[in-house]
Design a protein around this nucleic acid. Sequence first.
DNA 1: TAGCCGTGGCC
DNA 2: TGGCCAAGGCT
Length: 371
Amino acid sequence: MLGSSSVLVNNQESLHSEWFAGRIIDWQQQYGRCGLPWQGADAYRIWLSEIMLQQTRVATVIPYYLRFVDRFPAIPVLAAESEEMVLAYWSGLGYYSRARNLHSASRIIMQQHNGEFPHQFKDILALPGIGRSTAAAISAFAFHERCAILDGNVKRLLARYYAIDGYPGEQKIEAMLWEKAEALLPEKNVAIYTQGMMDLGATICTRSKPECCRCPVQAGCVAHRNGCVALLPTPRLRKKLPERKTTFLLLRNGSDILLEKHTGRVIWGGLWCPPQLDIQIPGDIESVRVYCRQFFNVEVINVLALPKFLHTFTHFKLHIFPLLIDVAVEDTLKAQETGMAWMGLDDAQCAAIPSPVRKLLQEIQKNCWES
DNA sequence: TAGCCGTGGCC
DNA sequence: TGGCCAAGGCT
């Protein structure tokens, strides 16, 4: 009894998977996104696009992607370049460990795979910066391997389709979603199916205002049947973000700015930033004069407090108090002894700098505040 | 394993 | 305005 009913269930599940995948594939071919610059490209470009697209929207990625492949058109070129240069082309995109891992992985590929992007799922997964879902996406798109992905789009889609309650970041919930993703995977056309799942999530089964009436799998969607689409997926409970303060010391010598390189796995790791104090300091010239003489060995000519602003990270808010400090420096090369460098404003804006620093440098250049 | 790691667009 | 969160991975 048990055996035959189990076979029946398996048959039903298999038939359902076939129906589901067929609907997704048909929909993708008719309505899916096409013409994205990495679609149909080589494994290197597909890899790059998948990394850039982690936690980042397509529209944001496209200009970065185009500039990046223009400058680093193949893996050997990327591997031969410095991390600094790679970060400069990543500057503004955020999550800079992605760029450091990408660069590191390119050198591993040169050493361990003769410069050719690996074809085996386990080899792809072993590269830094590539987890289970990204490895599956590359395998499916570049090599047409039968691997299931589970990115944000697919999580949202499946959480609704099966009305799975609970935050998808939770391990138990995520395990259930992986199970569903694997079970639905078709035998053929995995690349089209995978792109279809992503595109359906991105354009129809959106976080807010999903267009269920245009969804190809609406007939099987449990959340739609139960009228709880808007409640799923369960949002994460978020604590209030802690707030921190920092003073940016924008030391200016003529048209040069003093920057220091953040090292290690810290916020903005590998990027150039103005020296910071993790408190708000008085902007009066005497306080700043004493501080700058002591720590930077420079004579302060003038101090101007620029407007404060807020920069929000994933896990804290940063109130930035910028001080534009005009100084006199005799030997600009001496800064190198302490891991700092004087850079011209134009050069600095081409360097690896985080977004708020770029914003400030542009402001300084535009307004030409006088000494 | 939960916290860490950016940025910008949306409502 | 501010909270939310995107084609996640690492430790």
